[in-house]
Amino acid sequence: MKFIRIILLPIVPIYYIVTWMRNWLYDRGFKSSKSYDLPIICVGNLSTGGTGKTPMIEYLIRLLNEKKSVATLSRGYKRITKGFVLGDEKATADSIGDEPFQFLRKFEKIKVAVDENRQNGIEQLMLLNDKPDLILLDDAYQHRKVRAGFNILLTSFNNLYYKDIVLPTGNLREPRSGAKRADVVVVTKCPKDISTIMKERIASSIKLKPKQQLFFSYIDYAEKVISKYNHLVLNELPKFTLVTGIANAKPLVDFLTNKGLSFDHIEFTDHYSFRLNDIELLSEKELIITTEKDYVRLSSHESLEKTLYYLPIRLKLDNSSNFNNSINTYVN
């Protein structure tokens, strides 16, 4: 734990009380939440990040997109625009945010919208002539002005929420009791060979409510890395530079290390805004591998076009049929 977090420990009870009281006011109806006449699925977490919300949103898009008109609604973190923006052919990572832009470039049929005011964002989507059949709210678990019909709470295997405390010493945005609002809890970034005993131990510690379901997932990494012009077989890569600007790069680093690959790692903070001197530094590298989220921000620089690749990933769920049935039952 960093020293600054230790000295901020006396603030933890204050933060806890404020966030607990806010939830209590919503739970008791003293602060109002708005419901809507179409299915709304919220994907979020209790922690400050790194739980795999983007892979989960993409999983839901693939599950629902063939039969339903799907829209995603995000805050659009670190975008240069304000208010409601609907992604189109002119959109960039700067105008709508890196993760929404990733959705936009990967899935042609969906609508991708951003708005820091989720109520307004939903209402604007519903005013469209071709309004969506359902909305996926990205990172909105604490946005309680909207009452989603189905809440998916993510918690990382290596940083389970019940082992953590609230900010500023811990990483939780709200007390652990906030987990009771979830319909489904998904433990993400698990080892592929996670044991039944470990699952039972986690389930016992989470202490699900009667109507809650628990699932376990892992990240499935592709066998090839992709660039604008080419693709390379992962196992055949020469020494490369790994560039990450995500909340938790450890699973990716561990995966590449266990593959026996040789690389240097340049690590930036989550949603990092790459500066000119960063691009100049990276332009000197012969081969760069990055995440898809970082790729959508870096690929606009011509100097990196021939050396920049990303490693695709997908979320895989244990007992996916039950998870899919729960989602489809709610949506239908």
Rank of each mutant, 00 (worst) to 15 (best):
V243E: 05
R28F: 01
A222E: 14
A179T: 01
I17G: 01
G52S: 07
A93L: 04
V185M: 12
W24G: 00
M21G: 04
Q212C: 08
R79M: 07
T51E: 04
G76S: 08
R62T: 11
K211D: 15
T51P: 09
L25E: 00
N258G: 08
I206H: 04
G170Y: 08
V18R: 05
S273H: 11
S204K: 15
S32W: 00
N151H: 09
N120Y: 02
Y36A: 01
Y16R: 04
L237Q: 07
D193S: 14
L63C: 09
L237K: 11
I197V: 13
K67R: 14
I6R: 13
L128T: 00
I57S: 06
V186I: 15
N159L: 08
K209V: 00
N322F: 05
S299D: 03
E58A: 06
G49T: 04
Y295R: 03
D27T: 03
F30R: 11
K163L: 11
F107D: 01
P312L: 08
I14P: 06
V187Q: 04
A179K: 15
R5T: 03
K259G: 02
T329M: 00
Y162F: 15
T169P: 00
T48P: 00
E58Q: 14
N158A: 13
N171S: 13
I135P: 07
S273R: 13
G97L: 06
E174T: 10
R105P: 00
S177W: 03
V18F: 15
L8I: 01
F3G: 01
G76K: 12
D264K: 13
T81K: 12
S32D: 01
H271C: 08
G260D: 08
N322E: 15
P10Q: 04
D115L: 03
E89Q: 12
V166N: 03
R314A: 11
K53V: 06
K82F: 02
S303R: 14
E280F: 02
L252Y: 10
P13G: 03
G49N: 06
A140T: 12
A71L: 09
F84G: 02
V187I: 15
I313W: 13
D115T: 00
N325H: 13
K228R: 13
N322L: 14
K250F: 13
T188W: 11
R28W: 01
G260E: 09
G52P: 09
Q102R: 09
K316V: 14
S283E: 11
Q124E: 15
D98K: 10
N129P: 08
V70W: 12
L172C: 09
L127F: 01
K53H: 09
Y141A: 01
N230S: 15
K82G: 02
L276A: 11
M1R: 08
Y309K: 03
Q212N: 08
G83Y: 06
T54Q: 05
L137C: 04
S217P: 09
K111I: 02
T92N: 08
I41Q: 02
S74F: 05
F157N: 05
G83R: 02
E284Y: 00
L298F: 05
T155D: 04
K199T: 03
N322K: 14
L315H: 02
S217D: 03
E174Y: 08
L317S: 04
E66Y: 03
Q212T: 04
R22Q: 05
G52C: 07
E99Q: 05
S177K: 14
I80E: 14
V185E: 07
E302V: 07
R28M: 02
R147G: 00
H265W: 14
I135M: 10
N258L: 12
K53P: 09
